[in-house]
Design a protein around this nucleic acid. Structure first.
Length: 381
DNA sequence: TGTCGTTTTCCTGGTT
DNA sequence: AAACCAGGAAAACGAC
């Protein structure tokens, strides 16, 4: 079950861009919503745990801003720290952000004593939940949910290619970082770790994972491994049938298939059973151009993925094209997304004037007159 | 259930 | 040669 951590990491990367704060029901705050409560407004005795807040019941990665405040408040109170010395701006962050902070960063923000204490507590919580996830017996519905997340987030983890990734899962919470780092750092690591072998012109991270890792992640006889896929391309059985690269490796000669997008779910059986349990009507997500825009206008969350070439004119450049594509694929639950496909979708925006062509410059695009929300006057960034 | 819009996938050919 | 660009064709898929 440690694999769910990896899903969390990737989901958190998206959650960073599209936060939903789903756990507000866990809060035990007395402060009104809409602003961070002052520490003096917080209570710690109204939940399951009489001394700690609801943060104690949740993986730090999943903490909301309120959970973080609650957690800080607990330690302020417990250590008899003078709360008036605290800069409340430092307390306004979610768990994902918090988890990227190094000990030094925490100490600089909260002082050596409280900072060290917070760091220690945070590491303890991280370790605890990393352990909990692997040891907890989950209910059937939780298993379904977990499986759902795993399939959607990293379907290629099922089958023969997962071993080393689990190490990443365990290590991730301790990634050394400072304030400037964030979840995208996770993606930044891959190009160096992987050994693309694809003959495809655009080596996606997905392909890299598939081609460079061996070993088994799940017991082949377990329901998880059988159900591994709403996306059958990534089960060992079906991969050859629908993935161009694999076909080429398998036969030594590319097999032609019909034009257009192949069906995502081509199998019956348990895969179909799992699939049928999922909602048929996922809420409409943001469009690709909005996704790109959101990466660009959140520089603190755009860790070297893209950059503005000309902020005023809306000209931007992909720095890590495949990483952006993977992130987009992650958002769309499509782990086979590549920059090639993403860029095709981008080119369709020319006609609709959401994007404008930038001739002669690779990986450079420009927002068009029908795009919104990126201009300096439209954002606070 | 059908239609529509937006991708997604594949492809060929061209450019850097 | 690899990486990227351009755009046609066709299909998937969610929304309405």
């Amino acid at each position: 079950m440690a694999s769910s951590e990896l899903s969390l990491i990737l989901n958190n990367a998206n959650a960073n861009l599209y936060p939903s704060e789903p756990q507000s029901n866990l809060l035990s705050m007395t402060a009104p919503m809409g602003r961070p409560p002052h520490l003096s407004e917080m209570t710690f005795g109204s939940n399951n745990n009489s001394t700690m807040g609801s943060w104690d019941l949740v993986n730090p990665q999943m903490w909301t801003r309120h959970n973080v405040l609650e957690w800080i408040g607990f330690h302020v109170e417990d250590s008899r720290f003078d709360a008036s010395l605290l800069n409340m701006n430092c307390c306004d962050m979610d768990g994902i952000t918090l988890c990227t902070m190094s000990k030094e960063t925490l100490m600089s923000m909260f002082g050596s004593m409280l900072g060290e204490r917070l760091h220690h507590s945070l590491e303890t919580q991280k370790a605890r939940y990393a352990t909990d996830l692997s040891e907890t017996c989950l209910s059937e519905s939780e298993l379904d949910l977990l499986d759902d997340i795993l399939q959607n987030s990293f379907p290629f983890m099922h089958g023969p290619s997962l071993g080393p990734l689990l190490e990443t899962v365990v290590v991730q919470p301790s990634i050394p970082s400072d304030n400037s780092e964030n979840s995208y750092r996770y993606f930044d690591e891959y190009p160096n770790q992987l050994t693309p072998e694809s003959d495809h012109g655009y080596d996606s991270l997905t392909e890299s994972f598939q081609s460079s890792h061996t070993g088994s992640f799940l017991n082949p006889s377990s329901p998880e491994s059988n159900s591994s896929d709403s996306d059958p391309e990534y089960s060992e059985m079906h991969y050859s049938a629908s993935t161009k690269n694999f076909v080429k490796q398998e036969s030594g000669e590319p097999k032609k298939r019909g034009r257009g997008r192949p069906p995502k779910c081509q199998s019956e059986g348990f895969d179909h059973f799992i699939q049928s349990k999922k909602s048929k009507h996922a809420p409409r997500g943001t469009h690709l151009w909005e996704f790109i825009r959101d990466i660009l206008i959140h520089p603190e969350k755009n860790h070297g993925l893209m950059k503005w070439e000309d902020r005023r004119d809306g000209v931007f450049k992909f720095l890590k094209s495949e990483a952006v594509a993977q992130l987009w694929g992650q958002k769309k639950k499509n782990s086979s997304m590549t920059y090639e496909k993403l860029s095709r979708a981008m080119r369709y925006y020319y006609k609709r004037e959401i994007l404008e062509r930038v001739d002669g410059r690779r990986l450079v695009y420009k927002f068009g007159k029908n795009s919104t929300g990126w201009r300096i006057e439209e954002t606070r960034y």
